[in-house]
């Protein structure tokens, strides 16, 4: 049985999966740059060159739906957005089509907390898959700017920004992954602050069905380490674990000689995961102090010839 009642996204539509948190005002937004065009001359030149190398009909088959939708829209520069709401366990709950279309220089912004209430969903932690009607004409159909996720607490604002992409992820037919390695050198465990990791088992395949079971190692400055299970993450689901959740309360004494600081290295074979680093007050995750998406370290090695 399909997870989604209808096709949730087309392969060329950029997607961004993000968490909401119960009790926080959660806002999602994106400003469309003035220069955005759905089709550029540069891309058309690349398309013609690429088609000459591939079989023409193969190219047409890949691009047909996208180009058809572009023609049907009258080559509109406006972007549309729709949101799919999932539980943290990856179950589909409902969808919302944003009624307006947004022209370059305009901004899309939505108060997700209010939307969830309007959709009669109980106050809880959720995942939202934001889908935009098209992206830049690059190989990943990346969004023309970054999404802003804003979490407003009673006297604090935490924001992270990242792009949406239409690249194949955890979709065996199109892309298989060696695995995930996420490094967080910002880990804190003190009486005031406890770090959390949130991992999202995302996929470009709406029918994705593989759970992930990462392992986490906590390393302190002298090289001593603790090893732990992160816990299972359902397909299209997410899990947030504080380092006290993973390693128990001994983590406070373990890191104490080093000012409560350390690094986690989290690995998972065979899948890629989206990863967020959270700093929270030591109050059972009631207060979110800061949030940031992680960056894959191996991206930095692209320029190295040999090692």
């Amino acid at each position: 049985m399909s997870r989604f009642p209808t096709t949730p996204w087309k392969p060329y539509e950029p997607r961004f999966i993000l968490p909401t948190f119960a009790g926080l005002e959660c806002r999602l937004g994106l400003s469309i740059p003035i220069w955005y065009r759905p089709l550029t001359l540069r891309y058309m030149r690349g398309l013609v060159a690429g088609s000459l190398k591939k079989k023409f009909f193969e190219s047409l088959k890949d691009l047909g739906p996208e180009l058809t939708s572009l023609v049907a829209s009258g080559f509109s520069r406006k972007l549309r957005f729709r949101l799919h709401i999932l539980s943290r366990g990856g179950e589909y709950l409902t969808s919302y089509e944003v009624p307006s279309a947004y022209a370059p220089r305009a901004s899309f912004e939505i108060d997700l907390s209010r939307l969830l209430a309007d959709l009669k969903l109980p106050d809880d932690d959720y995942l939202v898959v934001a889908v935009m009607s098209r992206g830049r004409m690059d190989s990943n159909r990346s969004s023309p700017a970054s999404f802003s996720m804003t979490y407003v607490d009673q006297d604090n604002v935490a924001i992270y920004r990242t792009g949406a992409f239409a690249r194949p992820l955890n979709e065996g037919r199109l892309k298989s992954h060696i695995g995930f390695t996420g490094i967080n050198p910002k880990v804190i465990a003190t009486k005031d602050v406890v770090s959390s990791l949130m991992l999202i088992n995302h996929s470009s395949d709406p029918e994705y069905a593989f759970a992930a079971s990462p392992k986490t190692v906590l390393i302190r400055e002298d090289g001593e380490r603790l090893e732990g299970d992160f816990g299972g993450i359902s397909p299209l689901g997410a899990r947030e674990m504080s380092i006290a959740d993973i390693f128990g309360n001994k983590v406070f004494d373990f890191l104490k000689p080093f000012g409560g600081r350390g690094t986690t290295v989290t690995t998972c074979l065979g899948v890629t995961l989206a990863s967020l680093h959270l700093q929270r007050s030591n109050d059972n995750r009631r207060t979110l102090l800061g949030i940031e998406h992680s960056r894959p370290a191996h991206m930095n090695f692209a320029g190295i010839l040999q090692h």
């Binding site: 910002k186 991206m299 930095n300 692209a302 320029g303 040999q306």
Partner: peptide, 15 residues
């Protein structure tokens, strides 16, 4: 002996 590809650079990831 990590040699850099001609014309390329190796960036640093940190927070």
């Amino acid at each position: 002996e990590a040699k850099v590809r001609p014309g390329k650079r190796v960036t640093t990831g940190y927070y």
